[in-house]
Each structure stands twice: as structure tokens, then as C-alpha cells.
């Protein structure tokens, strides 16, 4: 086995991209940061997914909420955002916020303190999370940008959405590499899922049909400490 792993690709500086001319940073942990407005976006946290499975008899380790909050805390500490948008499916189901152990609830509250926090409604959590502060919205507009959970086909430029859990696959030296990714054609963007137990759906899947212009499309794949931008032609299905 040859271990000289190598993912030949190019990337923009520190994952810097533009969506409808707004500059944003793709954090390799899966968060999007707008330095000018100091807005941080995360999507599909799926908090308490483990306990949602446990209710049905699959006793997954109950630490996913903790792991997701750890990651979120690190991202917040680095970017110091004024506003945080959680772009839907923040909890895995409508009872997630109630099920959340007290220690986790306290950590989440600490993260929320001192900044504006917006819960965008998702299909898993259409209602406001029970017993947590923050503003609740179906959709947010910030300048030319529109933040909503599910991407709309034919939406105006500037849409930032989640929901699909985009992932990308490339094949290099005969080996397939699969990662979560930011999926964008410069006009709109679909956020990677942020939660510790969230899987991926390949950006070439038919669920993405009609969302992007492939000529200008890039999958910004999440690496250990940077993102890797891959053009559409380099990507594989499956």
C-alpha cells in the first residue's frame, strides 16, 4: 500500500468565495462566514440525532450533540461572529430540544450569549426549539442574500440553503475520496451538513437537478485544515 496520499487540486485562498458578489469564507469544519457583516452560517446540525435513533431501539452513542457543539464552539471562537444563522434541521426532530441533556443545553446557551442567533425552520424542526432563546424565521434576507433551509429551483441569485447534505467524490490514483462540501456555482450555495452524525448526498444526485450552472460549479470539499475546490468535471457519482 502506498501511503503518499495526495489530492491534486487548486483552491482559492483560505476557501474564500463569492456568492452573488458577497465575499464569504468556507471554513473546513463546515461553516460559512461573511467577514464584512460578521455573520456565521451553519446548517443541518441535527442535534440529538443519537437519542432520536435510540428511541427506536438503535442505541447510537449519545455524544453527537456534544461533538457538534464542540465543533461549533471552535468555529465561533475563531471567527467571533456577531450573528449566527442555524439554517434549519438544527434538531433532528421536534422533541430534540426537550430531550437534550441539561449539560448540553447549558453549553448551547453559553454559545448563544452575546450574539444574535437565528433559527431558520427546517423540515425536521418546523417549530421553534422548545425552551431556547433566539429568533425564529422561515427565511432571512441580508442584502442580496436569501437564507432558507430548502433550496428552491429557479431561485434568484444569492440563495444560501442547506437540507441536501452535499458531498462530493473524486477519484485519484484509482482511489475514491468522499467528503462533505460547500456546493456553489457563484450564484447560490448549498451548505454542508454540520452535525456529527449527518451523512452526505452526492452533488451529482438527481436531487440537485436544476439548482446549479455546472460550467461555473465548484464543490469545496472539506479537508483536515483547508477546503479543496473541485470543478464539476472532476466529480464522480455514487
Amino acid at each position: 500500500m502506498n501511503v503518499a496520499a495526495d489530492m491534486r487540486s487548486f483552491t482559492t485562498r483560505a476557501g474564500e468565495i463569492a456568492i452573488a458578489d458577497e465575499v464569504a469564507l468556507c471554513d473546513p469544519r463546515g461553516a460559512l462566514f461573511f467577514p464584512d457583516s460578521r455573520v456565521l452560517v451553519v446548517s443541518d446540525l441535527h442535534l440529538e440525532k443519537g437519542s432520536a435513533y435510540a428511541r427506536r431501539g438503535q442505541l447510537l452513542p449519545p455524544y453527537d450533540t456534544g461533538a457538534t457543539l464542540d465543533l461549533l464552539a471552535a468555529v465561533i471562537a475563531e471567527h467571533r461572529p456577531a450573528t449566527i444563522i442555524s439554517l434549519g434541521d438544527s434538531f433532528h426532530d421536534g422533541w430534540g430540544a426537550e430531550r437534550m441533556p441539561q449539560s448540553y443545553r447549558e453549553r448551547l446557551l453559553a454559545l448563544m450569549t452575546g450574539r444574535e442567533w437565528i433559527w431558520v425552520a427546517g423540515n425536521h424542526d418546523p417549530d421553534a426549539p422548545v425552551g431556547l432563546p433566539g429568533m425564529v424565521a422561515g427565511e432571512i434576507a441580508l442584502g442580496r442574500l436569501r437564507f432558507r433551509h430548502e433550496p428552491l429551483t429557479g431561485a434568484e441569485p444569492g440563495e444560501i440553503a442547506g437540507h441536501l447534505h452535499p458531498g462530493a467524490v473524486i477519484v485519484q490514483r484509482g482511489r475514491a475520496v468522499r467528503r462533505r462540501c460547500f456546493a456553489t456555482d457563484g450564484e447560490r450555495l448549498v451548505m454542508p451538513a454540520f452535525g456529527a452524525y449527518t451523512g452526505t448526498l452526492n452533488v451529482l444526485d438527481r436531487a440537485y437537478r436544476g439548482l446549479f450552472r455546472w460550467e461555473t460549479f465548484f464543490a469545496h470539499m472539506l479537508g483536515a485544515d483547508r477546503v479543496y475546490a473541485m470543478a464539476h468535471r472532476r466529480l464522480r457519482g455514487g
Binding site: 438503535q58 447510537l60 461533538a67 451538513a193 452524525y197 449527518t198 448526498l201
Partner: peptide
Amino acid sequence: LIEKRHPGQEKTGRQMTVSADLIYDVLRTH
């Protein structure tokens, strides 16, 4: 802890299943 994949169940889509790798990472840390 996790269920075997049965024929016909794969259709639920990757984003819905919790992969063993993710569980491993979380369990090892915590």
C-alpha cells in the same frame, strides 16, 4: 449497534443513514 444493510433499504439515501465512521469518531473522543 448499527443495522445491516438489507436489499431495498439502501434507497433511503446516504444522508439519512449514520455511517459507522462517524459513530466511531464520536465514540472514540467521548
